[in-house]
């Protein structure tokens, strides 16, 4: 379990990294926290000519509010997001979900940009950014472009990132009055990738759900928006029966994978349970559920 030979560069300026990407393209691989990449390298599942270590590019490590947008630099560690008062106040769903990302040592190294770029279908961050309808800023030597989360994720470990581009920023809409959030996941052990996880935003206005956003991980080839559940919930008065129907609708609409940890049927069953539990919580119909 030692990686195949590779060259290594660790630029401290974003422009240098983008120059290297422009030169090497798909012959280069970007190292951020390395929590997924390094194991893959050690198994020799990943081979490339150049490893671009971006850990010295401190300009990509920030969390700030800009009007109605929460901006998170791609190199921001999960742990910093977890501890950020800004995130807790303006993106409570992110604050709740990030605690489920692996274990503390992994959160201390791993980055949000790395997680999104890697696009593991079981990872929490992609589902959360999808649920919040976030925007991702991709930059290359020739310029930057903004891609909505709905377009960014393109299947199993696959994104809209071009070989010469680097994900540099995540933009999330600031939480509005009336919006309530909840995230839960089921994993076989604490800290593992989720078998299924569900994040939700429910906007309650005058006793009705004016807007619902549900996204899940672990039930498809990437993060999945649960639009069937959202449609069923919107404009309705929240009740336990309503969330049970939404859960059934969500489960019927997904096409989960079977792997050694869980078969498709079990994932669908978990999804239903979690949609119901998360929805009820977000709508204030139940107390916070325990982690198992």
């Amino acid at each position: 379990m030692k990686p195949a030979p590779f060259n290594y560069r660790a630029p401290d300026k974003l422009t240098e990294a983008l120059d290297l990407l422009a030169t090497y393209g798909s012959d280069a691989k970007v190292l951020a926290g390395g929590q997924s990449l390094v194991p893959a390298m050690n198994f020799r599942l990943n081979r490339f000519a150049l490893l671009i270590d971006i850990n010295r590019i401190r300009e990509l490590e920030y969390i700030r509010i800009d009007g109605q947008v929460l901006r998170i630099g791609a190199l921001t560690r999960h742990r910093d997001i977890e501890m950020s008062p800004l995130v807790r106040e303006h993106a409570p769903l992110v604050a709740e979900a990030v605690r489920h990302v692996a274990h503390l040592p992994i959160r201390t190294r791993g980055t949000i940009g790395g997680s999104l770029s890697h696009a593991d279908p079981a990872a929490e961050s992609p589902a959360i950014v999808l649920a919040l309808d976030g925007t991702l800023v991709l930059q290359s030597r020739t310029g930057a472009r903004s891609v909505r989360a709905t377009e960014f994720f393109q299947g199993m470990f696959s994104t809209a990132l071009q070989p010469n581009e680097l994900l540099v920023e995540i933009q999330l809409p600031v939480a509005q009055p009336g919006q309530r959030f909840a995230f839960e996941e089921v994993s076989r052990r604490r800290g593992d990738f989720a078998i299924v996880g569900v994040g939700a935003m429910v906007n309650l206005q005058h006793g009705r759900i004016s807007q619902a956003r549900f996204a899940a991980c672990g039930v498809g080839t990437g993060p999945v928006r649960l639009r069937a559940a959202e449609q069923l919930l919107e404009q309705q008065v929240p009740t336990a029966a309503l969330f049970a129907r939404a859960a059934a609708a969500a489960a019927a609409a997904v096409d989960p994978q079977t792997d050694i940890h869980a078969d498709a049927e079990y994932r669908r069953r978990l999804l239903a349970g979690l949609v119901e539990r998360v929805g009820m919580r977000a709508a204030g119909l139940s107390e916070g559920a325990k982690r198992d």
Binding site: V186, Y266, L270, G273, L274, R277, D292
Partner: peptide, 8 residues
């Protein structure tokens, strides 16, 4: 656990 089937 009724949601996950996990034996606690």
């Amino acid at each position: 656990d009724r949601i996950t089937g996990a034996p606690i």
